[in-house]
Design a protein around this nucleic acid. Sequence first.
RNA 1: GCGGGUGUGGCGGAACUGGUAGACGCGCCAGACUCAAAAUCUGGUUCCCCUUGGGGAGUGGGGGUUCGAUUCCCUCCACCCGCACCA
Length: 804
Amino acid sequence: IHMGHVRNYTLGDVVARYKRAKGFNVLHPMGWDAFGLPAENAARDQGIHPAKWTYDNIDNMKAELKSMGLSLDWSREIATCHPGYYRHQQQLFLEMLEHDLVYRRKSVVNWDPVDQTVLANEQVIDGRGWRSGALVEKRELAQWFFRITAFSEDLLSALDGLERWPDRVRLMQENWIGRSEGVRLKFDLKDRDDMLEVYTTRHDTLFGATFCALAPDHPLAKKVAEGDAAAADFIAECNRMGTSEAVIERAEKKGYDTGLRAVHPFDGRELPVFIANFVLMEYGTGAIFGCPAHDQRDLDFARKLGLDVIPVVAPKDADAAAFAVGDEAFTDDGRLINSDFLDGMTVPDAKAEMAKRLEDMGRGTRTVNFRLRDWGASRQRYWGCPVPVVHCDACGIVPVPVEQLPVELPDDVTFDTPGNPLDHHPTWKHTECPTCGKPAHRETDTLDTFVDSSWYFARFCSARADVPVEKGAGAYWLPVDQYIGGIEHAILHLLYSRFFVRAMRKCGHLDFDEPFAGLFTQGMVCHETYKSADGKWLYPEEVDFSGETPVLAGAGTPVTVGRSESMSKSKKNVVDPGSIIGQYGADTARWFMLSDSPPERDLEWTESGVQGAWRFTNRIWRLVVGAIDHLPAPGSAPPEETTNAAKEMRRAVHKAIVAVTDDLEAFRLNRAVARIYELTNTLSEQSEPVDGWTLREAMETAVRLIAPMMPHLAEELWHRLGHDILLAQCDWPEADMALAADDTVTIAVQVMGKLRGTLEVAKGMDKSALEAAALELDKVQRAMDGKPARKVIVVPDRIVNVVV
RNA sequence: GCGGGUGUGGCGGAACUGGUAGACGCGCCAGACUCAAAAUCUGGUUCCCCUUGGGGAGUGGGGGUUCGAUUCCCUCCACCCGCACCA
């Protein structure tokens, strides 16, 4: 495990332990997202079977997690690579297939011809495969897709109801789903029978259209290319262009005139139809009309090719006749010009009118369009969940009957040939068609590992059940009350899970829509980076800080200290949790994880910070152990009379309970830690002796407050304080509000808004008494300089401000 | 380009619905203990100025609202994150 895990699981464990102490029935499980490429890479590079590699890792990680003292329910442990898990995933897949939420279609993929595999966009670097370095080709392959777009509207609108999600994540999902309202509109093509359909959100600017453009892989473009070699070349050139950000940014707008002419539906102008490199087949209809005056891309394109620019919207206060567009398209609202029946309208009015006219003419339909695409889930890999279908020449795609599930991965695979090991396996894919019994072959695609993680939280509810989720268990536990994860999951994992829960509802497994009622996105764990003189990254333990400047340990050569970044193996700025836990103990590591930085922000790992946590661990130990001899037995009666010192101590104790409880409820764990420091400072600075009963209450409270954060230390101290049952079985301490309340209050006294003194007065003192007391202060008199008070603002229990 | 966020001591960060800016931790300084060091304990620590006592400035810059602004409004700057030719 790495420090990010330590932080994540510490946060979760604090919540679990706190909520348990508050009387909740808490399900705090652990599972392993265990399929995926790393296991296959290890197999190929080290000759270890992916299963062995994976289960060995699980054993190691489990031991490390156990050393952290996490209050996990290991009886519900799951691993997504276990047939007992993926069997149910296969069943869900088949049910979704039946409900038309899964389908297979051809789609363009990045194909690495050397490794014989499909690559994700992130694995294509400068047009080459990240591993093989081979030029990546675009290929059409039949792939499995989840029909996430069936829920586009709902996935978007339901975001409003996710009140306990960060706004940031909701916004990112909103943008990702990308809803837009527009019109699909058909142009006649001159001298042809077919029509060209485009999608637009700016139908109000139709009179400003000066061209149309097709995506390079648009069917019409392909048809043109059949009889036009130059067009075919242009399309091929577009396809060679990478999809990486850098390429797109630099790419110039290019177009090829097909010779086709689209006829403007209102004024009959003939618009040239181009094939253009900036039009995407995947969005809308894969074709656009271009209105250069009011769209920057269209304008760039028009300037490049010398096309007309006709402004049709002018700023409200501009002289319409003189309005012209330079190098910047005008995209704001304004008044329509040069647009016949739309002239004088605002943009929204013009949109409404144009949409209505187009619909009346039968040329257009108002359409809601989404950016969201269906989720391509096929992977040509071994270490993943097999897609449970059979391909039969006679029957087509045939689902594997449920009673034959799981379709298990074969053990005896090799990784020495490129491509999908399931495909090369001598026997595995050969089977009989479940319908007709003739020879058939199994699907050799496995599922994207995001599928595995899209429903595991539901599996925890009944981890050993022979159905994916037992109805009662799912209804009792779900949705997840508190989910904690990194921001990197803001879109994919969280969106896929939201889709899966909806799909599982449709298939009758669950009866709610949202998987995670509360989401918390934690920050990363960061550390300084170090580079040696020859520019190589160094591990922190390779650097010697004992001298004036840091040097390479042993060699003495200078070391450059870089900025603090998220811990990563590639930059070697990592600290191994195992060695920290070995050196300081789990409680100190946990305590440090919670100190200082708010959980949602990045945490800077520093050696001195850990030592601070270690000092506190020792300090509270000495404080409590040192008091034990002065304490009466647990449960003794309180003294008849109390001293002022005892009263003060109880006030501090009960105030701390109130504050820590509030902070835990609000997930302000760094503040909860600060409050506990405050309490222990007060307790150790106590000079006047107090009675044993009060001291016991104070020590026990301190121990109970640290328990969610430092469970081992807390249990040991609790035991030493004379208790027989575990602190983990005890309730959270309750604050006595009357004891916590202050009876005096400090009032700030200002003259003209500047602090001139303070008053220590009884709580609730009335305005006139406060005013009188404030005006008597020496410093106030001096600051007023003999002038009369024009006005005195008094806020009881807070402030007096004298205006002269 | 579009969308969002952040900015407070040497550092991480506190500050409830506008009401004593800097809680708590780190670091640093001084003292105690020690032959010494470590550990521990005590005190101090926003900056500037005058010896105590006090005065002034101060929450990225500028402006505004207010008796009073880290908090609300306008504007500019810096950094960070997400999406990215989405018609």
